[in-house]
Amino acid sequence: VTLFVALYDYEARTEDDLSFHKGSKFQILNSSEGDWWEARSLTTGETGYIPSNYVAPV
């Protein structure tokens, strides 16, 4: 499992996005959609889309 960590805070703009804070960790579920990845937050357990340029591999 590849884990990613948030580099910045992000406020969701749609109900499909995940809001998160810098330092939040994610499991990436689908990275084939270009700049928006489907991810599960390891902090909240919620699933949604995150901007790929806001995260980096742990």
Rank of each mutant, 00 (worst) to 15 (best):
L42W: 08
K25P: 05
G45A: 04
V1H: 13
L3H: 10
Y10I: 01
T44G: 04
S32I: 10
S19N: 06
I28C: 04
A12I: 02
D17I: 12
A6Q: 01
L7Q: 04
W37F: 07
L3S: 06
A6F: 01
S19P: 05
D9M: 03
D16H: 15
N53C: 10
V1M: 13
G23F: 04
V1R: 09
W36L: 07
T2A: 12
D17M: 14
S24P: 01
T2P: 12
T44L: 03
G45M: 07
A39N: 01
T14V: 07
K22T: 08
Y10L: 02
N53G: 11
T43C: 09
F26M: 05
H21R: 14
I28G: 00
L18A: 01
W37E: 01
L29R: 04
T14E: 09
E38G: 04
H21I: 13
L18D: 00
Y8L: 08
G23Y: 05
T44Q: 03
S52M: 09
E33N: 15
S31P: 10
W37H: 03
Y10S: 02
Y49L: 14
E46A: 10
G45Q: 06
L7E: 03
G34P: 15
K25S: 07
R13K: 13
G23M: 03
L7G: 01
R13V: 12
F20M: 05
Y8G: 04
D9Q: 04
I28D: 00
F4K: 00
N53F: 09
E15W: 09
E46T: 06
T2E: 12
G23E: 04
G45W: 06
T44E: 03
W37I: 06
I50Y: 00
S52C: 12
I50C: 03
Q27V: 15
A39T: 01
L18Y: 05
S24H: 15
S31K: 13
D17Q: 15
A39W: 02
W36A: 05
E15V: 11
Q27N: 06
F20A: 01
H21D: 09
S41E: 12
P57A: 10
F26V: 03
P57Y: 06
L7P: 00
E11G: 05
T44S: 09
I28H: 00
A6I: 02
L3Y: 12
D35R: 08
H21K: 15
W36R: 14
Y10D: 00
S41R: 07
E15N: 12
F26T: 00
D16G: 15
D16R: 15
S32V: 10
V58G: 05
E38I: 15
A6S: 05
D35M: 11
Y8I: 06
L29A: 05
Y49N: 08
T2H: 12
G48S: 02
E46C: 09
S41F: 06
V58R: 02
I28T: 02
E33L: 14
Y8Q: 08
L42A: 06
S52F: 08
S52Q: 07
A56K: 10
K22E: 07
L7M: 09
T43S: 13
V58M: 12
R13P: 07
E38T: 10
S41A: 09
K25H: 13
D16P: 05
S32F: 10
A6H: 01
N53Q: 12
F26L: 08
G23L: 03
L7I: 10
S41C: 14
E15P: 13
W37N: 01
Y54P: 01
I28Q: 01
A12E: 03
S32G: 11
A12H: 06
F4S: 02
S24R: 02
D35H: 10
F4G: 03
G48W: 03
R40G: 02
S52A: 13
T2Y: 11
L7F: 03
H21E: 13
V1I: 13
P51F: 06
A6Y: 02
G45N: 08
T44D: 06
W37Y: 09
E15H: 12
L3G: 03
S24Q: 15
A6E: 00
L7W: 04
D16Q: 14
A56G: 08
I50R: 00
D17N: 11
K22R: 10
V55K: 01
I28E: 01
F20K: 00
I50W: 02
T43R: 08
E11N: 09
N53T: 11
L3T: 09
E38M: 15
E11W: 09
S19C: 05
D16L: 14
D9S: 08
Y54L: 12
Y54S: 11
Q27E: 14
T47M: 09
Y49M: 14
V58W: 14
T14Y: 15
E11Q: 13
A56C: 10
P51M: 07
N30F: 07
A12F: 02
S24I: 06
A56F: 08
Q27W: 14
D35L: 12
V5M: 08
S31Q: 14
V1Q: 13
T43G: 08
A12R: 08
I28A: 02
W36S: 07
V58L: 13
E46W: 06
V5Y: 11
